[in-house]
């Protein structure tokens, strides 16, 4: 294992110290493991709190700031945060308007946020939860923990964050978040596995000429192993897989996110995006907005995910609204 770390035990704490040093506009509570805006939201604003295992940066800590999250709770690498963290975050950012938890659908995240929601409710903090489950690789959700939350998390956090900034009440922001999740589908392919620092070895073995199609953001296995092929063919397969599940019709508009898994260069991500755009054009699906880069990563995994969110006027307005976070900024 070759990593820029001091020790596997301190990697999350050390990264949070770096985040604090780099971003004075964030308040990093190292003891509570909560990252929030240094300048709190307006009184009564619906507050957004998200969190999850570390190792997916910039998700979630890089999305804290005006127009997006009010606070994020980073857990250990690939391990959900504990209820104490989430409760501390909720306490810190609630200004009377209640708190929306954006939770990716993993057993641990769901349990820890649910316990935190109970504790917050006991303290009189109003909480609503949006569960993100956009990964079409999980097909049989009756006999599994359900679809995983991946790239759509960014779209949910961006749109819901924008609506909250406009003063919408908690119930409305939660409804919007659920609508965005329902309008989103994702699918990912891995070229290599991620190495968790505390483990020291890649999470799975993949031969030089094979990919894992449908991989999860913690290296969960996908639908199948496939031979590595040119980007055009891989992109076409990924687009077709998402479209087959999505039910998009010719003429529909989408927000398209081509997301790097951590170790794939932007050069390659743009190659992929070009192929994705061609394939969507063939299907007569129009790309209304696009985003290319490393946003929902899996440590040092190579590969990419595609997220397509069906867009309408309201969603595009919220997508275009100003945002100022370490990882996503426009005005």
């Amino acid at each position: 294992m070759k990593k820029l770390i001091n020790s596997p035990e301190t990697v999350v704490a050390d990264a949070l110290a770096g985040l604090a040093a780099a971003h004075p506009e964030l308040a990093v509570d190292a003891a509570a493991r909560v990252v929030r805006r240094a300048r709190p939201g307006a009184p009564g604003k619906t507050a957004l709190v998200s969190g999850g295992g570390s190792g997916h940066e910039p998700l979630h800590v890089g999305f804290v700031g005006p127009g997006m999250l009010d606070a994020a709770c980073p857990g250990e690498v690939f391990t959900s945060p504990v209820p104490d963290q989430v409760l501390a975050a909720a306490r810190a950012v609630d200004t009377g308007g209640g708190v929306l938890f954006v939770v990716k659908n993993y057993t641990g995240d769901v349990m820890n946020f649910a316990l935190a929601a109970e504790l917050a409710a006991e303290e009189g903090i109003e909480v609503a939860t949006v569960l993100v489950d956009d990964d079409v690789a999980v097909q049989d959700s009756t006999f599994t923990a359900g679809r995983r939350g991946t790239g759509a998390t960014l779209v949910v956090e961006k749109a819901a964050g924008a609506l909250a900034e406009l003063g919408a009440p908690l119930a409305e922001v939660a409804a919007l978040g659920r609508r965005v999740n329902a309008a989103s589908r994702s699918y990912a392919v891995a070229l290599t596995a991620a190495t968790v620092p505390a483990v020291g070895r890649p999470g799975f073995e993949l031969p030089e000429d094979e990919i894992e199609a449908g991989v999860g953001i913690h290296g969960e296995p996908g639908r199948r192993r496939e031979p590595l092929r040119p980007a055009r063919e891989l992109a076409a397969e990924v687009v077709d897989t998402v479209l087959a599940d999505h039910g998009l019709a010719p003429g529909d508009e989408v927000i398209a996110l081509v997301n790097g898994m951590g170790a794939t260069p932007l050069l390659e991500l743009y190659v992929v995006f070009g192929e994705v755009a061609d394939r969507l054009a063939d299907a007569e699906v129009r790309i209304a907005r696009s985003l290319v880069g490393n946003y929902v990563t899996s440590l040092d995994m190579a590969g990419f995910s595609l997220t397509l969110t069906r867009a309408d006027a309201e969603l595009l307005r919220l997508w275009d609204a100003p945002v100022a976070t370490p990882a996503l900024t426009w005005c």
Binding site: G53, G75, S80, P81, V82, P83, G108, M111, L115
Partner: peptide, 12 residues
């Protein structure tokens, strides 16, 4: 355990 483990096994 709830406060330190995380994941699913902490709450469980």
């Amino acid at each position: 355990l709830i406060s330190t483990v995380g994941g699913a096994s902490g709450p469980l």
